[in-house]
Nucleic acid binder design. Structure first.
Length: 262
DNA sequence: CTAGATGTTAAGGT
DNA sequence: CACCTTAACATCTA
């Protein structure tokens, strides 16, 4: 479930393993994930270059491979990055594998193939064309208030809308609302200044904490909703059964006792 | 066998 | 225009 914290974790992983080494080959095992570029073209453009640095915006990861040459990675539902030593075997669902001069490899793994790999020239232009909102961790309270307070609809739908704020997905949206003690269907326009501040703080807390724990599910606090979400889950705060509802087209899990509609 | 699952987007409706 | 819902994508699991 790669949302902002997972993608940030992938970014740090890539930065720690795969920068500054000459790319000697690109193996495309399934071209389905390639967007606007063929396997041959991708290989031709990257071979001999190096990944120099990376930049994350929302759920997108951009890796610079030269002037006006960026690799864009989106992880869809099941994407991830795996770095391998020369003698290790890449998993069956590795779709694209970048090979470096030292024979280590970086695999873009994606079982369900909703992920995307693309070459672009300009990150800013991409963000603009795609209409992505500011990164969820790149805005302050006032901007957050301006965005959330200015829109109608369920507060959860607004958190999920990548054109308004980029990076929050279904799971973390539920988590944020749980910490803000806010019902996901709450009409955003009804939120007071104080509510918006509480929501903003919850957003920062949840995303920062998840990143700090490298989004390791086993290490996320038991007091969080995430580990209790779904099937017969109980609220970690009051012990009551969690409820679900479809809000903004996605399944929301929440506690009707702890999260009141405003 | 069917429904639903973490993401995004296009298309159609209100 | 702002917002909502649905379907579609590929694949696995309950």
């Amino acid at each position: 479930m790669p949302e902002l914290p997972e993608v940030e974790t992938f970014k740090r992983y890539l930065d720690g393993t795969s920068l500054h080494q000459r790319i000697t080959g690109v193996e495309v095992r399934d071209a389905y994930v390639l967007k606007h570029v063929s396997a041959r073209e991708l290989t031709r453009r990257l071979k001999g270059r190096r990944f120099e640095n990376s930049y994350r915006h929302g759920k997108h990861l951009f890796v610079r491979a030269g002037d006006e040459l960026w690799l864009r990675l989106h992880f869809g539902m099941t994407g991830s990055l795996e770095y391998f030593k020369y003698d290790e075997v890449a998993p069956k669902t590795a779709r694209v594998i970048f090979r470096f001069a030292d024979n280590c490899r970086l695999a873009f793994d994606d079982q369900r193939k909703f992920g995307e790999i693309e070459l672009i020239e300009d990150v800013g232009e991409f963000l603009q064309t795609r209409g992505l909102g500011p990164d969820a961790l790149g805005i302050g309270l006032s901007q957050f208030k301006a965005i959330v307070g200015k829109h109608r609809g369920a507060v959860k739908a607004i958190l999920l809308n990548q054109r308004l704020i980029a990076g929050i997905g279904n799971l973390y949206a539920d988590e944020i609302l749980f910490h803000a003690r806010m019902h996901p269907a709450t009409e955003a326009a009804r939120l007071s200044d104080k509510d918006l501040r509480r929501l903003f703080r919850a957003t920062r807390y949840v995303l920062d904490k998840a990143i700090a724990l490298k989004t390791d599910f086993n290490r996320l606090p038991k007091s969080w909703l995430l580990t209790h979400r779904g099937k017969r889950g109980r609220c970690p705060r009051c012990g009551r059964a969690l409820k679900s509802a479809i809000i903004g087209g996605r399944t929301a899990w929440f506690c009707t006792h702890c999260q009141k509609r405003i």
